[in-house]
């Protein structure tokens, strides 16, 4: 297994009076795609938002490339090479597709070669380049959201349930795009409930339940062990297969 790029050690998160994460330990190896699985309410989204410091960790330590980032402001994390694709896609509805992409290219004008590669992954975006993002379909918004994260080279991508609510044909397109992304050895931490999607893409996996990580290992091992799948993921797994 490669060296971890991201490491969470005993991370707790409170949202108001609610104690959501109860000591998360997680490592994300560099250059791999790590799947974060678990039932609804297990704490997957909270884990991503805590890494991005959108919700503060009340206890524990998060390191990125060996540096402690537990208290680092969100904008600094983004500048240091993290990209975040939230569950609701975070697309700016009143901005055009072009403006959404321009904003994502934080360090300057969009690199034409990079843009060509991104548009190659999601050809639909070119067609809607000057349209308001709010007029796109759910799948197209998801593509835009991921394309924004890819428009500049990133060290780590945090992606929250990209297949949620999408048609199977669109999910297949996303699988293709992530497979091409994997060839660039970009490190990805991807939250997912669709086990087929996770199985097709994941190198390693972590499973969460009730605010803690209850299993880590290779994705292939989990995919091969149905009993383990049932024990860790239960009915939520069956419903997605």
């Amino acid at each position: 297994m490669a060296e971890p790029l991201l490491r969470l050690e005993g991370v707790h998160t409170h949202i108001g009076h609610y104690h959501i994460l109860h000591g998360v330990d997680l490592t994300v190896p560099e250059g791999e795609l790590t799947m974060l699985l678990g039932r609804n309410g297990a704490g997957k989204t909270t884990t991503l938002r805590t890494i991005m410091n959108l919700w503060k960790a009340s206890q524990g330590r998060i390191t990125f490339g060996g540096n402690d980032i537990t208290q680092t402001p969100t904008y600094e994390l983004a500048k240091s090479g993290m990209a975040y694709v939230p569950e609701d896609m975070g697309v700016f509805h009143l901005l055009s597709v072009r403006e959404n992409m321009e904003l994502a290219a934080r360090s300057g004008p969009i690199d034409p070669d990079r843009l060509e590669w991104v548009v190659g992954l999601f050809p639909a975006l070119k067609k809607f380049w000057t349209k308001e993002a709010g007029t796109l379909s759910g799948g197209q918004k998801q593509m835009l959201s991921i394309a924004r994260a890819l428009i500049e080279p990133r060290k780590l991508m945090l992606v929250d349930e990209p297949t949620k609510g999408l048609a199977p044909a669109i999910i297949n397109e996303l699988v293709g795009a992530f497979q091409q992304l994997k060839e660039t050895h970009t490190t990805v931490l991807l939250v997912e409930q669709n086990f087929n999607f996770a199985q097709a893409l994941g190198d390693s996996v972590a499973v969460m339940d009730d605010g803690v990580v209850v299993h880590t290992g290779a994705m292939a091992d989990l995919a091969a062990d149905e009993a383990l799948q049932t024990r860790l993921l239960g009915l939520s797994l069956d419903s997605h297969q």
Partner: peptide, 24 residues
């Protein structure tokens, strides 16, 4: 202008602007 795009984006979601690396 990019500042203008940032303002329009910020009106919609300050959190996402911050997550893209801008100091809101």
């Amino acid at each position: 202008t990019k500042v203008g795009i940032l303002i329009r984006a910020g009106v919609q979601s300050t959190e996402m602007v911050e997550a893209m690396g801008y100091r809101i």
